[in-house]
């Protein structure tokens, strides 16, 4: 049984993960809740971690695997109201996850669990030549700009600048974040990094980002992008395979 202070914040987590995956197996143990899975095409990976400390209350015995249909969970979470607390309660007898919104009253959905097991995927240990921290909404806006021009985007780090660019058949777009840019928090690089990525996936991954959030990007040349940010007490990490010329 786990209680989160803001159901509405957690809704964003579920929305974002549901953009990429159809189902997920949550692992709940005394450290908190984690989950990791690749999308069916193996282009993207989502890793979710909600540390025990993010919960207002958290009770567990042993370790539980909770298989969830994300489309159904998303629909339920969309009913969260702004002051609702969220209680997630595993009913092992009925094989259901109770999703409870608590405010002046108490609304309970019982979500049927899926018979899936947790994936054994470990994050690959990749050495990245460049790490960029920037304001999440600035990154999201640059991706939306690029989306007007093409279906892919090039993310580059060169000369202590982070660049988002794309070329269409007729039109081009580029956004530069250098040390003078208030959106750029930090940039560490050993040499250049340049990789191209599918924009649809990237836009799905940044869906939950809002003003004030900070994203951390790990980049290389023709390497997967690693993207991290925190949302509603959850740490989200995404990997996205590059497009290669």
């Amino acid at each position: 049984r786990a209680t989160l202070e803001s159901a509405k914040e957690f809704k964003k987590v579920v929305d974002t993960v549901a953009q990429i995956l159809d189902e997920i197996c949550l692992i709940a143990n005394e450290d908190g809740i984690t989950a990791r899975a690749m999308d069916p095409s193996h282009v993207a990976l989502v890793s979710l971690e909600i540390p025990r400390l993010s919960f207002e209350d958290y009770e567990i015995e042993g370790e539980k695997e909770i298989g969830i249909d994300l489309e159904a969970f998303k629909k339920i979470m969309n009913r969260a109201k702004s002051k609702d607390k969220l209680i997630l309660e595993l009913d092992e007898e009925k094989n259901k996850l109770n999703v409870i919104f608590e405010n002046s009253g108490r609304r309970k959905f019982s979500l049927a669990l899926l018979d899936i097991s947790a994936s054994e995927i470990k994050m690959p240990e990749i050495e990245y030549p460049a790490v960029v921290m920037l304001k999440g909404d600035a990154f999201k806006e640059a991706l939306k700009d690029a989306d007007l021009i093409s279906d892919y985007v090039i993310l580059k780090v060169e000369d202590n600048k982070f660049i988002v660019e794309t070329k269409g058949e007729l039109n081009d777009f580029s956004a530069e974040f250098d040390e003078d840019s208030s959106a750029l928090i930090s940039i560490e690089s050993q040499g250049h990094a340049k990789s191209a990525f599918n924009l649809e996936y990237l836009l799905d991954m940044v869906k939950g980002i809002k003003a004030g959030d900070i994203v951390k990007l790990y980049l290389g040349t023709d390497m997967p992008l690693k993207l991290e940010y925190s949302l509603g007490g959850a740490n989200l990490t995404f990997l996205l395979a590059p497009r290669i010329e």
């Binding site: 690749m38 095409s41 990749i126 395979a241 290669i244």
Partner: peptide, 12 residues
């Protein structure tokens, strides 16, 4: 034409 890679290549 650019080719979309999968993550499998990078998991080795």
């Amino acid at each position: 034409k650019p080719k979309q890679m999968t993550l499998d290549v990078f998991f080795k």
